[in-house]
Each structure stands twice: as structure tokens, then as C-alpha cells.
């Protein structure tokens, strides 16, 4: 935590932490406490007065079927995004790891989508799936599927899942490849001598050995799908059609800025903060365990 040797106490350390602490207080602690305070208030319809209502906003939330639906939708969305992008990355990393020369070359070709903003990923995919012009609807029409994500909720959901997962493959690939390359070669060779083929070696040796990475990536991908995909939803579907792609973080924004339901939106923020804290704690506990390996 602290160096054994350190400088004597003076005014200097306070000056050094001052900028960070000031920004943290003004832009993090104060807004977060405001959100908590607001979640206990109900504003009247004209915005003239507020009333302190304790947990009423939360009670309303927990009985609001729209909110519970959104919760469920977010769970489906994030699980599918994580599964799709991690699965694809795992396959690619499994093969890339076999390449003696050129693994780094493939890595270069696979990691750059990380740099693309989620909203741009959304724009690219919505262009490819544009119902009148897009390339995929054109081919889907040939095999008899009509694509219109402006009308079909499931298709809209599929579209945002694809866009979100596509961008995240790069990240997962990078971590899977690094994890696989850190497995000692002798273990793999021993299995090969015992007669295990590539597929068997992968499932019985490589996959179990990289399970800590899988778990780490699962948490990271869930956090990504929960929060960072806001841009995709906002630009591509606006939570629609209906509410079929309204995930939690989009609902906070929509209820607060568009619906102007400040108390309700603040209560949702508090629930989301609690979720982030749970995820962070899970991740930190995992990191600790991995150090003990």
C-alpha cells in the first residue's frame, strides 16, 4: 500500500491529490448523492413542488411491469452479446494459437474493431440491414425472409445484439489469445504424446486452463452490454419498436431526459449503481482469487 520509505508529511501531498479529489467530489460524489436524494422525491406534474416520499419511487419501480420487462430484456441482451462475442473470439483464438508464424499478424487483423465507437458499430450494422436498401435484407428476401427491424421487435433486438457483439470480439480475442499463449507447451505436448487430437486437447486442457479468463471476460462483457451499448440503442432503434429494445440504461436516459420523471429516473439510477457495485465486487473477488493461484 505505502512505500516503506516515504517523504515526510507536508502540504505537498494535499496539493497533489487536490485536482483529482476536487473533480471526484464535484462530478461524482455530489451527482451520485443527488441521484440518491432525488430517488426519494416525487415532483408534481407542473414541476412546482416536490414531496419527500421515502421508498415510494422504488416501490413503484418494482411493481412497474415496463421496468421489470426492461430488466428481463437487459438480461437476455447482455447474455446473448457476451455469449456471441466470447464464443466467436474463443474459436478464433483457439485457431490463432495453433499458428506458429503469423499469430501476431492475425491479431493485428482482428483487434482493430475495438477502436470503433459503439454508435458507429450501430450505424454500420443498421446500414447493412436497412430494410429497403441494405445488403442483408436483399439476400434474406431471396431465401424468403422479410427483414424490417422498424416493425419487428425481435429483429431489432437481433440487430443491436449483432452490432454490440461484433465490436466486442476484438477485446475478447485479445484476452483469450494471451491466456492461451501463457499455457505451458509441455502440457499440450504431453497430451499429444498420449494421443489426444487437437479438438480433444482444446476441450480437456486449454479450455479448463483459461476458465479464469472466461470468467473475467464474462464480467467485462456484461458491464459492456449493460452500459456502453447505450450508443447503439440510441442511434439504431431508440428503444423501439415499441419498447422491444429498451434496456435499463436507455430507460434511465429516456425517463429522465425525455419523460422528465426525475424521481423515477433517479431511482433507476440508484438500482443501476447498485448493479455496477455488485459487478465490480464480483470482479475484484475474482482477481484476488486468481492471484492466489
Amino acid at each position: 500500500m505505502l512505500k516503506r520509505v516515504h517523504f515526510p508529511t507536508s502540504l505537498l501531498p494535499y496539493l497533489l491529490v487536490a485536482p483529482q479529489i476536487a473533480i471526484t467530489l464535484v462530478f461524482f460524489i455530489w451527482p451520485a448523492s443527488q441521484a440518491m436524494y432525488q430517488s426519494f422525491l416525487i415532483e408534481d406534474a407542473f414541476g412546482l413542488g416536490t414531496e419527500f416520499v421515502w421508498f415510494e419511487n422504488f416501490e413503484v419501480l418494482m411493481t412497474d411491469s415496463h421496468y421489470l420487462d426492461s430488466f428481463q430484456r437487459t438480461a437476455v441482451f447482455s447474455v446473448l452479446v457476451a455469449a456471441l462475442s466470447m464464443g466467436f473470439a474463443l474459436i478464433l483464438a483457439g485457431f490463432a494459437q495453433r499458428v506458429v508464424r503469423g499469430a501476431m499478424f492475425y491479431r493485428t487483423l482482428l483487434i482493430w474493431p475495438y477502436a470503433i465507437a459503439p454508435v458507429l458499430a450501430g450505424a454500420l450494422w443498421v446500414f447493412m440491414f436497412n430494410p429497403t436498401l441494405g445488403i442483408f435484407p436483399y439476400f434474406l428476401e431471396i431465401i424468403g425472409i422479410t427483414w424490417n427491424h422498424y416493425l419487428s421487435g425481435n429483429q431489432a433486438m437481433l440487430l443491436v445484439i449483432l452490432a454490440a457483439a461484433w465490436k466486442q470480439v476484438a477485446y475478447n480475442f485479445l484476452f483469450y489469445l494471451a491466456a492461451m499463449q501463457s499455457i505451458p507447451n509441455s502440457v499440450i505436448e504431453a497430451a499429444a504424446i498420449d494421443g489426444a487430437g487437437p479438438a480433444r486437447r482444446f476441450w480437456t486442457i486449454v479450455f479448463p486452463l483459461i476458465s479464469p479468463t472466461t470468467f473475467f471476460l464474462l464480467v467485462i462483457n456484461m458491464v459492456y452490454a449493460f452500459f456502453e451499448t447505450f450508443g447503439i440503442i440510441h442511434a439504431v432503434t431508440q428503444g423501439g419498436p415499441g419498447t422491444s429494445t429498451t434496456i435499463l440504461v436507455y430507460k434511465v436516459f429516456n425517463d429522465g431526459f425525455v419523460g422528465l420523471d426525475l424521481g423515477g429516473s433517479a431511482a433507476q439510477s440508484v438500482v443501476l449503481m447498485a448493479l455496477v457495485i455488485v459487478m465490480t465486487v464480483v470482479q475484484f473477488r475474482f482477481v484476488e482469487r486468481k492471484v492466489a493461484y
Binding site: L2, P13, V17, Q20, I21, T24, L25, V26, F27, F28, I29, W30, P31, A32, Q34, A35, Q38, F227, E228, F230, V249, V252, F253, G256, F257, L262, S265, A266, S269, L272, M273, V276, I277, T280
Partner: peptide
């Protein structure tokens, strides 16, 4: 010192998306 450390640590947990409204007001 540890108080400051924990204050910074807490901010790790709060992405801008969850506290947009109050931060916007500030």
C-alpha cells in the same frame, strides 16, 4: 490518505451513464 484513496476508488464503480441527470445539472 486512505480516505482519499477510497474516495477515488468509489468512482471506479460509477459509469457516466448511471448518473447523467445530476451530473448534467452540475
Amino acid at each position: 490518505r486512505m480516505g482519499f484513496f477510497w474516495m477515488i476508488f468509489i468512482t471506479l464503480m460509477l459509469p457516466v451513464e448511471v448518473r447523467i441527470l445530476p451530473t448534467f445539472e452540475v
